[in-house]
Amino acid sequence: MQKTLILFSSSAYETTSAKEGLDLALVLGTFEQPVSLAFSGEGVSLLLESQSPEKEHGKHLYKLLDGLEFYDIDDVYALQSDIELYNSKHALWEGVTSLDQNAWAKMLQTHSQIIRF
C-alpha cells in the first residue's frame, strides 16, 4: 500500500506551515492512510523538547508528538546532519529516529507521495 510522507523543513513557529502540515498528517491518520513524518532543515525545531511557545505562536506543536500514536503515526524521522546543524545541545523528542544521508535517501524512496511544509 502506498505511504505518504509529510516532510517538515520550515521552522516550527515562524509560519503556520508546521501546524498545517501536522493537521494534514492527522487527517491522513484519521482516514487510516499510512503516513510518516520527517524533519529536516529548520523543521527539526519542532522536535526540541525544551520549546515553550507563547499564545501568539499558536498551538504547542511539540505536545502533539506524544499523541501521534492515536493517529497510527509511528514513523518519525529526522536528518542527522540537520539536527547537528540546527541544534547541538538540546534534547529531541524521544520518538524520533535520526537518519544519516544514505538512510534518509532510502527512507524517502519508501514513500509514494512526499508533501513538504
Binding site: 492527522l26 484519521t30 504547542h60 505536545k63 502533539l64 506524544d66 499523541g67 492515536f70 493517529y71 497510527d72
Partner: peptide
C-alpha cells in the same frame, strides 16, 4: 485530558484508540 495533553480534539479513530488505551 487528551486535549490538555495534545492540544487537539480527537476525531473518531484517535478517540476510540485513546479510550481503548
Amino acid at each position: 485530558k487528551f486535549y490538555k495533553e495534545f492540544e487537539v480534539s480527537p476525531a473518531m479513530r484517535p478517540l476510540v484508540k485513546a479510550v481503548a488505551k
